[in-house]
């Protein structure tokens, strides 16, 4: 069951098209998976529309030309192609992606195997920061770390824990420099997440601290 959702502020900014693209994409993916947020979004959009469409600008002579121009345009073909659901494949497993992430399955620059039974595939979104699909095998973990910026994570499949709490499929997780965590999974099927990170990870404990100079591997 999904317990963690974007807050109202985030949903509202998303509905207005005001948040950063990476953030918007991960919120969109969450709403694809979460009926509750989808309904909220519909209400927010209706309210925004009511506000935005309440005011009229003064009449403009350019409108007549505009109307005439538009009426010259042909109708778009009404053919809707049923779309084939794309799957993400890794190590013999297949994952169905939320609609908004489907297009990015093609943009994966290959999976890298990282220490700790982790697989990571960066997605080039052209945004500041980075976006990744990360797959943790059963028993896999990321060394304890915190963030210099904000990390948004969406659980796409499976579940994991980070020493703070447990996360289930569909959960939307926000982590910042206030949190030190150690994500790991014991789920048999492992766990696939999508995350957006605006600054490198900062490893905090033991031998993993030595990874800090290399955290560009996690954040290239």
């Amino acid at each position: 069951m999904i317990k963690l959702h974007p807050n109202s502020q985030q949903l509202s900014e998303f509905a207005q098209g005001q948040c950063d693209s990476g953030v918007a994409l991960i919120i969109a993916a969450h709403t694809d998976m979460c009926r509750q947020c989808k309904q909220k979004l519909t209400l927010i959009e209706a309210e925004l529309a009511r506000e935005a469409m309440a005011e009229k600008s003064s009449p403009d002579p350019a409108f007549d030309t505009m109307l005439a121009n538009i009426l010259q345009m042909p109708a778009a073909s009404g053919i809707e192609v049923s779309y084939k659901q794309k799957k993400l494949e890794l190590d013999g497993k297949e994952f169905v992606l939320p609609r908004s992430l489907q297009r990015y399955a093609d943009k994966i620059n290959g999976w890298s195997h990282l220490p700790g039974k982790l697989w990571q595939a960066r997605v080039d979104l052209g945004i500041d920061g980075r976006a990744d699909f990360t797959y943790m095998e059963k028993g896999g973990s990321v060394p304890e770390h915190t963030h210099r910026g904000t990390e948004l994570t969406l659980v796409l499949d499976g579940e994991f824990s980070d020493g703070i709490r447990n996360y289930d499929t569909g959960d939307f997780i926000e982590r910042s420099c206030d949190h030190v965590h150690t994500p790991h999974t014991e789920a048999d099927e492992g766990c696939l997440v999508f995350s957006i990170l605006d600054k490198p990870l900062h490893f905090t404990s033991g031998i993993a601290r030595l990874l800090n100079p290399f955290s560009q591997l996690f954040f290239k």
């Binding site: 919120i27 053919i79 890794l90 620059n109």
Partner: peptide, 28 residues
């Protein structure tokens, strides 16, 4: 930036056949 509005808000969604049929063979 590669993200476009229809990814997030499918208001005018009419996917083309070619978009939907691109196969996924990029795994390493």
């Amino acid at each position: 930036e590669d993200i476009c509005s229809e990814d997030m808000w499918p208001v005018l969604c009419e996917q083309t056949a070619s978009d939907a049929e691109v196969s996924l063979d990029h795994q390493v």
